[in-house]
Write a protein that binds this DNA or RNA. Structure first.
Lengths: 237, 237
DNA sequence: CTGAGACTTCGGCGCTGGGCGAAGTGTTTG
DNA sequence: CAAACACTTCGCCCAGCGCCGAAGTCTCAG
């Protein structure tokens, strides 16, 4: 029989430790062996074996700089496939408790190359409610040019000609939100405009004061952002 | 850490036998234990264990009718996730040889709920070349109404209002083709109009004589269909 | 009722693979 | 050069799982 070798990918993601590493890597940044070992709760030598396996499966690429090795997902297709899996995978049972404890954790975060978390879902809802975006047939369609006006963003023609919004199932919200090229542009712009900032330490993204104002004024997200003023990223224990 | 349990899905697809079963199930129909055991090359009792596992992972549902149990993928999300994985998974090395031997096998087939195979790819290309479909930002966009005229198909308003075409990476061609709601409509129509037929035995779909004529005249696919006249589905060995 | 067929359960075998401690390699710092 | 550090390799232990033969359950045909 002619078959794609799902099993090779399956082997790679079949282990809980590797799953945790991949979830970490979904943030889009590079991570060192040590960071990923800590995220997975194993020793560095075990993590090393896992990462080698993930590399062999083609999910992860490594780059050596000095005495450090930086690992990241090998491409957007991988992130997209993992997202798709997350849509059908059960959630970690520890999740709900942890989320309560962690508070603001993951309110805003990056999902490989676009925004995710409750705020991203709220943004998508607001864009639809205001007529800037249309949901149909399982996809998001921008109402020509409108979406950019809604965000108050000026974008290059190249992007205007390819404003395709791929839906993405959020891990925590289980709701669709904007991914794809448009999602990437929104994240990029939000970072460039200073609405969001990657904190030096820890996970997630910080909403800056101008970011608060912009999202509240342009999309009416004041209430969704209510608990976030001065939000610092939260660490576990 | 809050994580989706990729590993549960991973465990389920981590085995080559289960991979073969899933590929079989991707056709979209229901299959019995015995059929799937044969497809995977294992005994029925082993297949039974595998299917139980796939069921526990939520990938497959079983329906008991009389003394037979029919298994099928639990939903479109599963098929979509598997497609996405196929895009990043290496192909079975036996594949190329088998494909040559099998000849017409898989020239046209269903991929869960839409068309796949070389002919589906050619259809997509033809629709783009003729201006009925636009590819941008990683998605396909119908040029309003035109695609249906191109296919000579009259479809309900409901579909016209939601003509979203999700791209799908074909297993064999490694090329994008039409999936999503539009893909489902195209497959449904092709079956209803008698252009395609599910053979009683064997895999894939048959292109009927009217189907040949319709695709050649409307989309200029005469050459793509050249080797297929009177095509019967091919069995292995 | 009896036999055949589809499927599942059970038990046992053998292999694979995750885990860590200890030791090794290469790089940066002092 | 020596010490610190990041990472990898090696060797070992043990749990888990794929596989099949044999036996059991359920359903249908005669």
């Amino acid at each position: 029989m002619a078959t794609p070798r799902f099993d090779i990918i399956g082997q790679a993601i079949a282990d809980a430790s590797r799953t945790r590493m991949l979830c970490e890597l979904m943030e889009g940044r590079s991570f060192t062996n040590k960071e990923l070992a800590s995220a997975a709760g194993v020793t560095p030598q075990t993590a090393s074996a896992h990462l080698r396996l993930l590399q062999d499966a083609g999910l992860v690429v490594a780059e050596k700089r000095g005495r450090c090795v930086f690992h990241r997902l090998s491409g957007p297709e991988v992130a997209q496939a993992l997202e798709q899996l997350a849509a059908i995978a059960p959630m970690d049972s520890l999740y709900r408790a942890q989320r309560r404890k962690a508070g603001g954790l993951a309110q805003v975060r990056s999902c490989y190359d676009h925004l995710a978390g409750p705020v991203a879902v709220a943004m998508t809802d607001a864009l639809i409610a205001r007529g800037h975006l249309r949901e149909e047939g399982g996809g998001f369609h921008p109402v020509a040019g409108e979406i950019w006006a809604g965000l108050g963003v000026c974008l290059p023609d190249r992007v205007m000609r390819a404003p395709f919004a791929r839906p993405c199932m959020d891990w925590t919200e289980r709701r669709l939100h904007i991914a794809g090229p448009m999602g990437r542009q929104i994240l990029t712009h939000a970072l460039e405009a200073g609405w969001l900032r990657r904190p030096l330490r820890g996970r997630g993204l910080e909403v800056t004061t101008p970011g608060h104002r912009a999202l509240a004024e342009r999309l009416g997200l004041g209430s969704a952002l209510a608990g976030l003023s001065g939000l610092k990223s939260c660490e576990e224990a």
